[in-house]
Amino acid sequence: MATERFEKKQARWWSSLVWPVSGLALLLLFDLCFTDGFFKLEVRDGHLYGVLIDILNHGSKVMLLALGMTLVIATGGVDLSVGAVMAIAGAVAARLINTTNVSFPVVIGVTLAVAIAAGCWNGLLVGAFRIQPIVATLILMVAGRGVAMLITDGQIITFTEPWLTYIGNGHLLGLPFPVWLSGGMLLITALLTRRTALGLFIESVGDNQTASTYAGVNSSTVKFFVYVFSGFCAGLAGLVAASNIKCADSNHAGLFLELDAILAVVVGGTLLTGGRFYLVGAMVGALFIQTLTTTMYMRNVSADIAPVPKALAILVVCLLQSPKVRTKFSGLLKRRGS
């Protein structure tokens, strides 16, 4: 009985990946046929270069955000503030590097501590005050960019510190550093949620909060934790974003990236209503979005028009996931089969 259930769970885990992976595969197939040079890889100065590596590299910010966002959405919430937290993190790091003489680990430590503090704020509002997640995180989304502006004094602060620029532009063992960073974070998050009871707690809170409370799960604490974790991920993504362009731009850092992160999570198969969550699916979702964006750039679609295909992709994915559409489709198939 136990093994049977275990096998069932395994099968489910893989089946959840079918949709996002086939979407990504379709997109890559399109590029293989119609976009020249999409799959060309070359080694220069011991580093791997190519469009595919670029997709991994540029997709890493959304991947980092999507990790935190997956856990938040699994509890039935949403974190709209991650873009603003990215801006704050970049601002703090750039400000510290330029105006003080503190060492590099301190800069990273303080930046991430600020991001975690932002996550604590969201977590308190949702967990302790029981404010709706959309509203609670909206506060920081509205005010966060103002705070980042306050930190940078309204300026775009540039920096040249080699360690800080390494985070976004450096290479490790042939691959860009952000790829390693997001890969490492995926591993840590997966271990944290799948090898401890935490993942189960998160899914139970998202599935049925009342039931999980009666079962002895402290839903407030679980919710608090996921928002703190999301803040931490946003802090890392903010460091990567600032490091990529070697400056802290409070107006544009992470702008609308929260939407991409939510989209990545949804494409990955996690339902917005909470419950079961899929970390790997969210990563595939993030890569799907980045591949879509890169494909459009390579096919000379202007960056301004790029949202249109993205919107259509969201709608198709939503429709495919809608239980109503699925039951209709399976009804059609059954009728044909019989």
Partner: peptide, 12 residues
């Protein structure tokens, strides 16, 4: 999600 898609669509 629907109005998010609407936002991208209208902007584009």
């Amino acid at each position: 999600l629907v109005t998010l898609a609407g936002m991208f669509l209208a902007r584009g």
